[in-house]
Measured scan of single mutants.
Amino acid sequence: MSIQHFRVALIPFFAAFCLPVFAHPETLVKVKDAEDQLGARVGYIELDLNSGKILESFRPEERFPMMSTFKVLLCGAVLSRVDAGQEQLGRRIHYSQNDLVEYSPVTEKHLTDGMTVRELCSAAITMSDNTAANLLLTTIGGPKELTAFLHNMGDHVTRLDRWEPELNEAIPNDERDTTMPAAMATTLRKLLTGELLTLASRQQLIDWMEADKVAGPLLRSALPAGWFIADKSGAGERGSRGIIAALGPDGKPSRIVVIYTTGSQATMDERNRQIAEIGASLIKHW
């Protein structure tokens, strides 16, 4: 067993022997301040990774656009098919120029040779490549099948209805392509620590998230040296922004954090800054 596999296998073990965790309302004060600064709703939840206990939450059962955070769930569904012998990570998928959609920095470079399922998941999570996500959605049967996968996990809230990039439209009061912070946090925890996926697939999923290259201005910008984070960000229309993450000190994750916002007129930089400040408060009061 590799060191990384050992780390993920012992996530519940280490967490069980940690000192009790206590909620700190100071972080919620910052979440509410972010709402004021952005002029928009902000949803927040913080779960203990081992027990699933909610440590703090704000608007945990209000719907927010998922945006690209759905790509972690998508690759979880792909990995479940791999575990069941219905898919192979090494299978190569070929596609054409007509398949390319807006923001496809990886797939646009491989029109000639195609990409493997493993490479597509890596591109979808680490670079948020939209064509990679659409190609992977095709392998599982489309958005409705991802929703069905989530329902089978016990998540009857999260739903995907459309493809990239239309799913980022974020129309107010439109339930399409949305989740709730509580539902997303619980589902992410199941994917990373539950028995739904094999140990190898859980490790692969967290490795992809740990290698995320496009979430630097968010929670990662607030992390002290030595902290662990595996995350996936999302951005959408109407001032929408979000991030889902597993993080913790001492090089291992111990909490799940989900943050979503929508309806702001603020710039992307300002949305990023507010999420980073929430992260800084979380870490300060850990």
Rank of each mutant, 00 (worst) to 15 (best):
M1N: 01
I3C: 11
H5L: 10
H5K: 13
R7C: 08
F14D: 00
F14H: 04
V21C: 15
F22T: 06
P25N: 09
L28R: 08
A34E: 03
E35L: 02
D36E: 13
A40V: 06
A40M: 09
G43S: 06
G43M: 00
E46V: 08
L47H: 03
N50F: 10
N50S: 13
N50W: 10
K53Q: 12
K53F: 10
I54Y: 09
F58I: 08
P60E: 15
P60A: 15
M66D: 00
M67Y: 02
T69S: 06
F70C: 08
V78Q: 03
R81T: 07
V82Q: 06
D83P: 02
E87S: 06
V101Y: 08
E102G: 09
E102R: 10
Y103G: 06
T107K: 01
D113N: 13
G114R: 03
L120V: 05
S122Q: 15
S122Y: 14
A124D: 01
A124G: 07
N130L: 02
A133V: 02
L135G: 02
L136H: 01
T139W: 06
I140G: 04
I140Q: 06
P143E: 05
E145W: 09
A148F: 12
L150K: 00
H151P: 04
H156Q: 14
V157I: 12
L160F: 10
D161N: 08
W163M: 13
N168R: 03
A170H: 09
I171Q: 15
D177F: 01
T179D: 00
P181S: 04
T187E: 03
T187N: 11
R189F: 12
L192C: 08
T198S: 13
R202A: 10
Q203Y: 09
Q203E: 15
L205T: 03
I206C: 14
D207H: 09
W208T: 03
L219T: 03
S221F: 09
A225D: 14
W227N: 01
A230C: 14
G234I: 00
A235E: 03
R238L: 10
S240H: 06
R241W: 02
I243L: 10
A245N: 01
L247R: 00
P253C: 11
I259L: 10
S264A: 08
A266Q: 11
R271P: 05
G279S: 10
A280P: 01
S281F: 15
H285R: 11
H285P: 02
W286N: 03
